[in-house]
């Protein structure tokens, strides 16, 4: 079949318009559902830092949201550890809406740092854990997670890590609960109050239960493990002013947003 150029061009234009309409229509219809799914996933990750993954996985979506509503309050601080309530545009900032990966592209001084507070049911004053988001680079792509600290702001209650493109079976194991459990009970500051973070060691299979700042490594995924180490050290470092303020007794001043 030999068609004229005009026919080919008309055909292409019609095809493009039809397919384009189809796609933008779908995106319009499914958009709100996708936002909800994203939001739920985000909240699940936050809760994952303080909850047993098995417990969390049996909850239905509505139960997760209700639990989150009851147990988590949130706030946003700046690099000095002062609470920020309004963004540059004057609108109130919601910690859940802060995009950590977008903030990562800004200079550390300009970023917004969300903090999620896990508290006893119905009583935001009765704080059980502080949950801090962390973000960094793995071997292939971004990695991120949440670190839950106990009220002494030093001992790690639990962590969750996620990744975009780490190697399955190697770096991707940072999402496995048996890897994340290694962080429980570790401490981020030494006795002088200097930030030591928790460092994943090279090699795997050694026992670091005696060392408060070391955890067993990931065999074959040293670069991802280094990424995790840098991420923790960087981000916890950014939160240090806030943590110190909390420790020095100004805890009562912290207004809790939700």
């Amino acid at each position: 079949m030999q068609q004229s150029n005009a026919y080919i061009i008309t055909f292409s234009i019609i095809l493009t318009v039809v397919l384009g309409l189809l796609l933008s229509g779908t995106s319009q219809v499914l958009g709100p559902l996708q936002k909800k799914a994203e939001d739920l996933d985000n909240k699940k990750q936050i809760l994952g830092a303080v909850m047993d993954p098995k417990e969390l996985s049996v909850l239905k979506p509505e139960e997760v949201l209700a639990y989150y509503e009851n147990r988590i309050s949130s706030m946003v601080v700046d690099i000095q550890g002062n609470e920020v309530e309004k963004g540059a545009d004057g609108n109130p900032i919601v910690a859940e809406k802060v995009n950590v990966s977008k903030n990562y592209k800004l200079a550390p001084e300009k970023r917004q740092y969300p903090i999620f507070i896990y508290h006893a049911e119905g009583n935001p004053e009765d704080i059980e854990n502080y949950i801090l988001p962390v973000y960094g680079a793995g071997l292939w792509d971004e990695i991120w997670g949440y670190v839950a600290l106990q009220t002494n702001l030093n001992t790690i209650e639990g962590v969750t890590f996620s990744h975009k493109g780490e190697t399955p079976g190697l770096g991707a194991r940072i999402t496995a609960s048996n890897v994340q459990e290694r962080y429980q009970g570790k401490e981020i500051f030494d006795e002088e109050g200097n930030l030591q973070s928790v460092v994943m060691q090279k090699g795997e299979g050694k026992d670091y239960s005696g060392d408060k700042h070391k955890v067993d490594g990931l065999s074959g995924a040293t670069i991802t493990a280094n990424g995790v180490n840098n991420m923790l050290k960087n981000y916890i470092g950014h939160y240090k002013p806030f943590l110190e303020k909390q420790k020095s007794g100004s805890a009562s001043e912290v207004a809790v947003l939700n």
Binding site: M1, Y7, F11, T16, L19, L23, T26, L30, Q34, A37
Partner: peptide, 30 residues
């Protein structure tokens, strides 16, 4: 389908369908 642009037409159709699948998964099986 004009023979001279058939591969591009095929690609456009396939790409649209794939994007649809991706969008549906994002909404219903995150």
């Amino acid at each position: 389908i004009p023979g001279r642009v058939r591969i591009i037409v095929q690609l456009a159709v396939v790409a649209t369908l794939v994007t649809l699948v991706n969008e549906v998964l994002k909404a219903f099986a995150y």
